[in-house]
Each structure stands twice: as C-alpha cells, then as structure tokens.
Nucleic acid binder design. Structure first.
Length: 329
DNA sequence: AAACACTAGGGTCACTTTAT
DNA sequence: ATAAAGTGACCCTAGTGTTT
C-alpha cells in the first residue's frame, strides 16, 4: 500500500444541510486540489441524521462561513436544496483552526459513521496536513481506546485538543477493509473501491435505497457502496422502474417556488396566500408518496401546474429582457 | 399545445473480481 | 480453474425544463 503522504492534499471538508428536510444533515464532501483544478468532489458521506435540529441550528450559527468565505472559494457548493453548514479550509498556507472541527463527526454521537472507514482516514489526513505529523506514530494524534472525549459543544477551546481525533478508530496507515491505494507513475494515489460483497448486496433492503432517493443514482450507488448495475438490478427487484431522484427534485423546486409565492402573497392577499400554501402542502404530500412508492408518477394536475409555473417564469424573464433592451435605447 | 434542448437514468456488454 | 456475479463505460431514451 502506498503511503498517504503521496496523496494529493485534501482541500477542505464541507458539510451540507438539506434545506427542505431540515432535520437531516445529509452529506459531507471532501474536496481536493487536483492539478490546479478548482476542486473535485472526492467522496460524499451520509448518516448524520441523528443530530437534533436545534443542535444543527447552533452549528449553523457557529460554523457557517465565519472563518472562510465559502462562496468565494468554493463557488456553487451551497446550491439547490443544500445549505453549507461548515467548512474546514485546509490550505497549507493557512493554519487550520482546530476548534472548527465539529464533534458531530464523532462516532460516539453518530454511530453510523463507523460504517464509513474512509471518513476516519480523511479526517486524519486533514489533521496531518495541518500539523505535519508524520504517519507512523498515531499515538501523537489519536486518543487511546476509551479515552474521554469532550462532548460539550459550548467548550470549544477545551475541545480543540481532542476534537480532531474523535473516534478515529482506523489509522490512515493501517489500511481499510474497503479500499486499497495504488500509486501511479506520477506519484498520485488512486483509490480503488473494492466491489461489494455478495452477502451485503443481498442484504440491501428497499429502506436502504429509499434513504438516497433524493440523490442521483450514481451518488446513491456510491453511498450504498455498490455498483450502478447492482443498484439498478435492486431497483427492478423492488419494483422501482426508474430512480425517482428527478421526480423528487422537480417537486422540490415546485415547493420552493410556492414557498416564495406564499411569502409574497402574505403581504398582499392573505386568502390567496392560503390557497398557495394549500397547493404547497398537496405537492409536499405527493412528494412524500413518491418517496414511499417510487413507482408512482407525478400527477397530471401537478404536471400541468408545473408547466404553468415554467410559462410564468419564462414570461417574466422575457419581460425583463424586453425592458432592459428598451432602457438601453 | 407542442416542439425543442438538455441530461439523468436505463440497457447492454466486455472486463474484472470473488466464491467455490 | 472456472462459473458466477459485480463494475463501469457506452449509447440510447425518457423526463424535465424552455421556448415558440
């Protein structure tokens, strides 16, 4: 196995919150610099859903973009239904702020994180890049098994010494069960994911798939740690003819439109606002139905309504362009 | 209403890996 | 060693969003 020092430097660890399902933190992205390119999504992790919303609000306040201007450095990352909650910027010319490393990456608090061996590795790599700690002496970095971990979110300074190594049960140097590294001629480590074990695939249930219905099928397959072919096969097995991500995304966008409309109408016409809110609830309930029964099609009425919204949007844009042209004359 | 553009997702298959 | 099963790339289609 190649040593981790040969790996391209990790740029940042970013956590997103789903704006619509506010109870869920849905993904952590690890970005890396690659040959001068802006940034590349390396992996996406899930499973942080056992955080309470109140805690998340707190995290949002404390961590969101206080230290780093994410929109400037990572354009396009906080988009769609995703809100960026926090970022660890690991630029080598900037000292990392260890207080920023969130303890909700702790397996103690989020036991499902244990099923993501590479997460521990990435956190350790990030930590090492910041501190230039040589691989090979994990005792300098890691708490011993069972060592106390601070869990009081309010004591950031105290936590700073411990947080980066929270529950990092696997060492970056010790290898992982699920992946192996190959070093190419240029010295860049390519991580190769081992194929899923047959018994694990057989164990995949509809509920496991359902967790990722709002992601593209490729992302879902990565998160489920199976290949695209297997996931498609599983879908047919469970009677899902098409992965429902696009339907759900489309309904999400309708819901967001309606939310904005409700706000606008509240200032002018309360009755109209109520009507829009009712429509919003109907679409939300339709979305829930599709999440439960992904074989369901979007209702004809909803499709018609969606088309009306598109038309309205298009008309507004056309008018805007027209008035801009006129003002230039 | 319908034509159009764009792209996510489906089907297929050569290749790779695992299980026996 | 070999059969079975998984992976991923490629091409095509269907669904979503835009424009006429």
């Amino acid at each position: 196995m190649a040593s981790l020092q040969a790996s391209p430097p990790l740029k940042a660890l970013v956590v997103f919150r789903n704006r619509i399902h506010k109870e869920l933190i849905r993904s952590i992205h690890v970005y890396q610099l690659e040959g001068g390119a802006e940034e590349v999504v390396e992996r996406e992790y899930l499973f942080l859903e056992n955080l309470e919303y109140e805690e998340m609000k707190f995290l949002g306040k404390v961590f969101t973009l206080q230290k780093f201007d994410v929109s400037a450095h990572f354009a396009g990352m906080a988009n769609g239904v995703w809100d960026c909650i926090y970022v660890f910027n690991m630029d080598l010319d900037k000292q990392p702020n260890l207080e920023m490393i969130p303890e909700d990456l702790s397996i103690t608090r989020n036991p499902k994180l244990a099923s993501i061996p590479s997460l521990s590795n990435d956190l350790q790599m990030i930590f090492k890049l910041g501190h230039k700690i040589e691989c090979g002496d994990p005792s300098k970095v890691l708490p011993k098994e069972g060592e106390e971990i601070h869990s009081d979110v309010g004591h950031l300074t105290q936590r700073a010494q411990h947080v980066p190594v929270l529950d990092l049960n696997s060492l970056p140097c010790s290898g992982s069960d699920n992946e192996e590294n190959n070093q190419n001629a240029a010295g860049v480590v390519e991580k190769k994911q081992k194929r899923a074990a047959t018994k694990d695939i057989a164990r995949l249930a509809l509920e496991d798939l359902a967790k990722y219905f709002d992601l593209p099928i490729i992302e879902a397959s990565k998160n489920l740690k199976v290949g695209l072919t297997v996931l498609k096969k599983k879908c047919r097995e469970f009677g899902i003819p098409r992965w429902p991500h696009r339907k759900i995304k489309s309904l999400d966008s309708l819901i967001q439109d309606l939310q904005g409309e409700v706000k606008r109408q509240l200032e002018e016409d309360e009755a109209a606002a109520m009507a829009v809110a009712k429509r919003q609830r109907m679409i939300e309930s339709e979305k829930e139905s599709i999440e439960k029964k992904p074989f369901l099609d979007i209702q004809w009425e909803t499709k018609k309504f969606r088309q009306d919204i598109f038309k309205r949007r298009h008309r507004a844009r056309a008018l805007e362009n027209q008035s801009r042209t006129l003002s230039l004359l």
